[in-house]
């Protein structure tokens, strides 16, 4: 039997995050230890074959997400993707991806496990958009953003990957581990006026 000694960046704040707000305003939850693999492809890499290898649909372009079950592929920039899925022993996804991608893309592609780089905070509820708007200048209004979209930007001056999951709305914030505590405390502060 192996003992899980991992400690998520927001473990100490889990109680506080869970205690704030409710279904009528905004709620926060850390989703610790999600698997993240970054893909980078050279200019001549066969991108559509990469997606076949991942069993994912091709996103429409930068800023869009292709989801298959629990696995999301976020297109962060031209020829740069972040694949995330729920926790599992990380090397499994990385080696599986790397193997399949090597077959599909050859040396023009790299797949690197970056699971420890970021942690995930889900922000959900009718006021989620208002809370994020306190520190994020990207237009998250439904006419400009929506489920299946993602973007990299600054939230309260911390670099984040922002993804919208559903119309509740639920936003998924992927933040660097070293910024997680700062950002979580900022979110709790920004939510003060909505959670009464």
């Amino acid at each position: 039997m192996t003992v899980d000694v991992r400690r998520s960046p927001l473990a100490e704040l889990a109680g506080e995050l869970a205690a704030v707000g409710g279904p009528g305003s905004v709620r926060f939850a850390e989703r610790p230890f999600r698997v993240q693999v970054e893909l980078r492809a050279a200019a001549d890499a066969p991108v559509s074959r990469l997606y076949e290898a991942l069993a994912l649909m091709l996103p429409r372009g930068v800023g869009y997400v292709a989801s298959t079950g629990d696995r999301d592929a976020l297109c962060l920039a031209p020829r740069w993707w972040l694949v995330t899925q729920s926790p599992e022993p990380a090397p499994v996804l990385e080696s599986a991806l790397a193997g399949r991608l090597r077959t599909a893309g050859g040396a023009a592609v790299s797949a690197v496990d970056v699971s420890a780089q970021r942690t995930t905070i889900d922000v959900t509820g009718p006021n989620a958009r208002d809370v994020l708007a306190h520190g994020c200048s990207v237009d998250l209004h439904p006419r400009a953003f929506g489920p299946g979209r993602c973007t990299q930007t600054a939230l309260a001056k911390a670099q984040v990957v922002l993804q919208q999951l559903d119309r509740a709305p639920t936003f998924r914030v992927l933040v660097r581990a070293s910024f997680a505590r700062y950002l979580a405390e900022w979110l709790l502060d920004a939510a003060t006026e909505y959670v009464g």
């Binding site: 930068v62 920039a77 031209p78 200048s137 990207v138 973007t151 930007t153 600054a154």
Partner: peptide, 11 residues
């Protein structure tokens, strides 16, 4: 060209 209009502070 890829992300659309953003604040100068991001650049």
């Amino acid at each position: 060209p890829w992300c659309g209009p953003r604040d100068e502070t991001e650049f």
